[in-house]
Each structure stands twice: as structure tokens, then as C-alpha cells.
Write a protein that binds this DNA or RNA. Structure first.
Lengths: 127, 127
DNA sequence: GTCTCATGTAACTTCATGTGTTGCTAGAGT
DNA sequence: ACTCTAGCAACACATGAAGTTACATGAGAC
């Protein structure tokens, strides 16, 4: 599938698709082919890749909207608060990633097909 | 203490301080006094207010940097992914808030004084 | 009463970040 | 050659948080 086609399906831009897919390619989840007839092909088993893998392949972008303002501080109050919060955030992050690590693409694929069957729609890419 | 003084201590602006403190005032955690000699005073027991209370008083701003792009979608793939993710996010949010609910301001106050004693510095507001 | 000092608030500006866009290069098939 | 594709850098735009300005209101001091 071409970046162009994916972009249409995702309501975005081919370049954005390439940016994202680049991370996946580096980890061997997809393969890309240049030139005429080129594009993206899947190169992994769907049951062996999880949301966590995807997240990490995408360079582990920030998960939380909250967090320390600065890594270092002179302020002992800020330091105490940062300490208390970052402990919690670290634990929660670990749990989130563990949960994501249990959601395989195969599971999502199945969930999609279940929805598809339920609404009697033809199987096309959305949009 | 005046917004002005707090702003200096926090390296920010008095108006920003007022915006934040406004939420705390509505919940009765602090009291404000206008005019000459006015400013902010604490009006709660530090051991009865938690980080979670503060978070909610601040109008519960977004916790996560990730999440659904849109609440509603026609796309069955997006729908399946949203479903899988929002379950996890809801659980993790609940845990995070529960943890915050166990961190009292009194505990932070104690942690601060411990640090203070450890570094032999005089007890002033940072900066 | 009026002067000064404080909060309250709206409107605006600035900044950071993520997303989208353009323009160009390089590779691969026709 | 020509066309179709990814790769990439550079720029433009959108969004939301943070900071700023300006002014109104209330409360004590004189």
C-alpha cells in the first residue's frame, strides 16, 4: 500500500504517514519499497506485535501531560513534590506499558472484524 | 502571602498564581483577602488534603498526552483501537488518582523539612 | 475622602509542541 | 526518458499552556 493511499484512509498527509511508518520499518514490522509499484508491506506476525511495540517503535513519545517542569531544581519544595510524583508516574507508566504489551495487533484485527460483521458493512478501509 | 510574593517564589507571574489559587479557594483550601494587608492564607489541615484534591481543585486537567483523536468515528479500525486503549487509560487513570489520593500535603511538608535539615540551609522560600 | 495595596478578571501575546505541507532527491519499474 | 514511489529537510499552521497587560473592585491607612 502506498503512503498516499494510507494517508487518504487516515485523513492525513503522505509525509506524516512516512514519518510514522519509518519507525515501524526500523523495527522490522513493515517493509518499504521505492519506485513504481512500491509502497508499504507488512513484515511481521500480527500476533507477535503489541501496542507497546508500536509505541516504542514510534520512539516512545511522551505519555503524560503532567510531570516535572524541570529535571533539576534548587527548590527543595519542588524537589519533594517531584519526588513524590515521579514515583507514582513511573509506576503507572510501567503498568500502562505492561497492559499495552498484552494487546496484540492480532487482537485488534479480530476486534475490527467482529465490528465489521456486526454492522454488515463491506470490508473496505474506512473513508 | 501575596500573589506577588508567591509568583516570585515560583518564578512566574502573579496573575498565573491567582488563576491557580482560584481553584483552591473555591474548594476551601485557601482563603484570599483583598486590599491592604491582603493576600492568601491557608485554610485547611495539611494532612487532610491530597495531591488528588489539588488536581481536582485545579479542574482536573488532561493527564495523558496520548488518547483518542476524536470521541466519535466512522472508522471501525479506529473504533477497535480506541476501545482497547481507552479501557487501559481509564484503569491507569484510576490508579494514578488513587495514588495521588494517598499523598497528603502534610507528607510533602515533612519531606521538604527533611531535605532542609539534610542540607543545612536556612528555611526560606526557594529563590 | 482619597491613596495605596491587594485580589479578580478579561483580553491579548508568547511559547512549545505536534501536525501538516512543500520542494527536492533518489531509486525502481515501464 | 518518463512515471511512480519512498526519504528527507525545511517551513507553515494549529492548538493549548503559560505569561502579560490593563483595568475594575474591595479593604485598610492616612
Amino acid at each position: 500500500m502506498t503512503s498516499e493511499a494510507l494517508a487518504r484512509a487516515l485523513n492525513t498527509n503522505p509525509v506524516v504517514v512516512r514519518r510514522l511508518m519509518g519507525g515501524l520499518r526500523e523495527h522490522g514490522y513493515v517493509h518499504s519499497e521505492k519506485g513504481h509499484g512500491g509502497g508499504w508491506t507488512l513484515s511481521c506476525q500480527l500476533d507477535r506485535v503489541t501496542l507497546r511495540d508500536i509505541y516504542e517503535a514510534l520512539d516512545a513519545p511522551r505519555l503524560f501531560a503532567i510531570g516535572n517542569r524541570s529535571e533539576k531544581t534548587e527548590c527543595l519544595v519542588e524537589e519533594a513534590v517531584n519526588d513524590a510524583m515521579s514515583g507514582v508516574l513511573a509506576d503507572v507508566t510501567a503498568q500502562l506499558l505492561a497492559r499495552f504489551g498484552q494487546i496484540t495487533l492480532a487482537a485488534l484485527h479480530a476486534a475490527f472484524h467482529q465490528r465489521l460483521a456486526a454492522c454488515h458493512a463491506p470490508a473496505t478501509l474506512c473513508k
